[in-house]
């Protein structure tokens, strides 16, 4: 090994060391610590009664109705918001890509939801649907307390998520759209394909990697949903998501043992989603990262 090469290695490690150290200390170490804590009966209100109990916390979570309901709610919110976002993201991306005028203005305004704090967006929609302050009931001539019923609360939560994150989905799809060579679409047009056929037979297959990446990012993000649910219902009306459940167990009830087990289960859930997308659907996640 040449001296030059060795100094390059050393510089490379030196430059990466601070970032790697931070990632180790603030994410890798705490998750291992969470695994460790999850094997104790450990309630901060009674810290002296800390006892090692192995996998008992997992057993009590996985046999409790609360966990499965929260997981079910999270799946409902995730599936609902991600599918609507994909449906709306396509037309939005097409408008950003093809519109004849105001293109700059349209692209700029789509970033507005992204720039708004999630808590603020959640409150804005909460007030909008509120029976006393809101304009929605006035507009629709209804007297409905949206956030006091399970399914209408889900509707408001999903609407908020969709509003906030569809632009992000659209931007990822737009990046895929711009990669499609115009010749390809022209050729399909010459061959007599109509707009729908061009979309399903040419655009979607070429965009498949971009679609999968967008879906993966948004699914993982929606699966971790906390802010919107916390602000709009605090998990009432059986809308609690698993992140809200974890927060309530850890920070509100101060049950570190049980709460850490919830955290570890959420972590495993995220891993499963990522593996299914990358291995199952062949999402090209790191294709260009290494070069």
């Amino acid at each position: 090994m040449s001296k030059r090469q060795r100094s390059e290695w050393r510089l490379g490690w030196l430059l990466c060391a601070p970032a790697v150290t931070a990632l180790m200390l603030i994410t890798a170490y705490p998750i291992l610590y969470a695994v460790w804590l999850s094997m104790f009966r450990y309630d901060l209100r009674f810290p002296d009664e800390r006892v090692f109990i192995g996998l008992d916390n997992y057993l009590s979570i996985l046999t409790s109705e609360v966990w499965w309901r929260a997981l079910g709610n999270t799946v409902i919110i995730t599936a609902g918001s991600v599918s609507v976002e994909l449906l709306l993201g396509f037309p939005l991306a097409l408008i950003m890509h093809r519109t004849l005028f105001w293109r700059r203005a349209v692209r700029a305004t789509t970033l507005v939801p992204y720039a708004i704090i999630t808590v603020v967006a959640a409150l804005a929609w909460k007030f909008a649907f509120d029976p006393t302050t809101g304009f929605v009931n006035g507009l629709l001539g209804l007297e409905h307390a949206w956030l006091t019923q399970r399914w209408s609360a889900f509707f408001v939560i999903i609407l908020t998520e969709v509003w906030k994150t569809t632009p992000f989905m659209a931007l990822l799809l737009l990046a895929g759209l711009t990669l499609i060579p115009n010749d390809l679409i022209q050729a399909a047009r010459v061959d007599g394909a109509n707009a729908w056929q061009r979309f399903t037979k040419v655009i979607v297959p070429v965009m498949k990697p971009a679609i999968l990446v967008a879906l993966l990012f948004r699914t993982l993000d929606a699966f971790r949903i906390f802010d919107t649910v916390f602000v709009q219902t605090r998990g009432a009306q059986d809308t609690e998501s698993i992140s809200v459940l974890g927060y309530n167990t850890l920070i509100v009830r101060l049950n570190l043992g049980l709460g850490s087990a919830v955290s570890v289960l959420i972590f495993i859930g995220v891993l499963i989603i990522a593996v299914v997308f990358v291995k199952g659907f062949g999402t090209p996640l790191v294709r260009r990262q290494g070069d």
Partner: peptide, 13 residues
């Protein structure tokens, strides 16, 4: 892709 909720307990402690 890490869920932040997974580490708030340890960090809190």
């Amino acid at each position: 892709m890490f869920p932040p909720v997974a580490i708030i307990g340890p960090l809190f402690n």
